[in-house]
Amino acid sequence: MKLLTHNMLTSKFMKGVVKGYPLGIVASEVKEVAVDYNPDFVCRMIPKLEWGSLCSAADSIGKLGDLPKELPENIESNQDFLKKVHHLLMEVEVISGNLICPETGRKFPINNGIPNMLLNEDEV
């Protein structure tokens, strides 16, 4: 699971859950893969992100580094910043662990890099 995916995922569809976002991450295996850097992609992606959620996710797996907690201005020209975001969004992968619903504590297992967001019958 890339952090880009994590940034989109929610447990809101569970019974009794109001927001279900952001999901906590408890990672037992994290790896890094090389993905071609494309500044246009990153620029286009950033406005759609929940920035705070990306920061806390990166922090929970020890990858925050010196990423600013507030989204800086003029990011288009800030190649250093864009590369960091690219790395976090596209190159860092949680291979195993759990995603945690912030309201119910329900764990969504991540195995072999695939988060399983399926619910049981009694949870919807």
């Binding site: 699971m1 995916t5 989109m8 929610t10 569809f13 695939i114 988060p115 399926l118």
Partner: peptide, 26 residues
């Protein structure tokens, strides 16, 4: 999903009636 993953794609498990993605992101 395992097959997709082996091919290097980013996937997650979910149901088409409850897509586990926040609104207005795609």
């Amino acid at each position: 999903n395992e097959i997709s993953r082996r091919r290097g794609h980013e996937v997650f498990g979910c149901d088409c009636l409850r897509v586990a993605v926040r609104a207005a992101t795609i």
